[in-house]
């Protein structure tokens, strides 16, 4: 089995040899390791992308807007790097759309890492594949095939507000059950149990 360390080093070198800078190569090495650790086909996708990669065949998203549309497919590496770098301003847009992104799985680790630094969950829809990024701790998805995804025509991305996934009532019910671990205090315990004095004026 190839170790994650070998994956990171080899992908970093391969990315550099495709003409990207060392700094970007470091990001892509780290990302591919992350994809493989999450059980997503990072090596398959990056390998296939580099087979067809030619700088001029792809468009770059340099500055993100709410709607990012191109006739040529966007390079997922540059799109990802700039998404990460501009995540503060993008998160203010709350929701963005990208039309025509090549090898969208390579974009995914940038989104996952952004979820961590932004402290927000991010929901991503790649055509009919859905991904929920949980602060770079886990990825919840309906995509399980492990195949290469060469292109996506429509990507929707949404920064989710930090809200609870449950109702106040559900929380109260659970809290009430937790109270069964508490001890009912007698008058004496109320006086002595806390350890501190009854007044704080001495």
């Amino acid at each position: 089995m190839i170790s994650f360390s070998e994956i990171e080093t080899t992908v970093k070198r391969a990315t550099k040899s495709m003409g990207f800078s060392w700094g970007i190569a470091e990001e892509v090495g780290k990302n591919t390791r992350l994809l493989e650790m999450f059980g997503l086909p990072g090596i398959k996708n990056i390998n296939q992308y580099f087979k067809i990669y030619n700088k001029d065949s792809f468009e770059n998203i340099n500055i993100y807007s709410r709607s990012n549309i191109s006739k040529k497919f966007y390079c997922p590496i540059i799109a990802g790097v700039n998404f990460f770098d501009q995540s503060s301003s993008i998160s203010e847009l709350k929701q963005i759309e990208i039309n025509n992104l090549a090898f969208p799985l390579l974009f995914i680790p940038f989104v996952s890492r952004t979820s961590e630094i932004a402290g927000k969950r991010i929901f991503l829809k790649v055509d009919n594949k859905e991904f929920l990024f949980n602060y770079n701790q886990s990825i919840y998805s309906n995509y399980l095939s492990g195949d290469i995804v060469e292109k996506s025509e429509k990507i929707n991305l949404q920064f989710l507000e930090n809200t609870n996934s449950f109702s106040e009532n559900e929380w109260s019910e659970l809290y009430k059950i937790s109270e069964d671990t508490f001890v009912e205090e007698t008058e004496e315990l109320k006086q002595k149990g806390a350890g501190a004095g009854l007044t704080d004026n001495d």
Binding site: F20, S21, W22, G23, I24, E26, E27, N62, I63, V81, N82, F84, D85, Q86, S87, S88
Partner: peptide, 17 residues
Amino acid sequence: KIGKFLTNNNDLRHVVR
């Protein structure tokens, strides 16, 4: 902001880090 600077200066990304 550093993020904006990097948009046109990714050749220096490794040393910014």
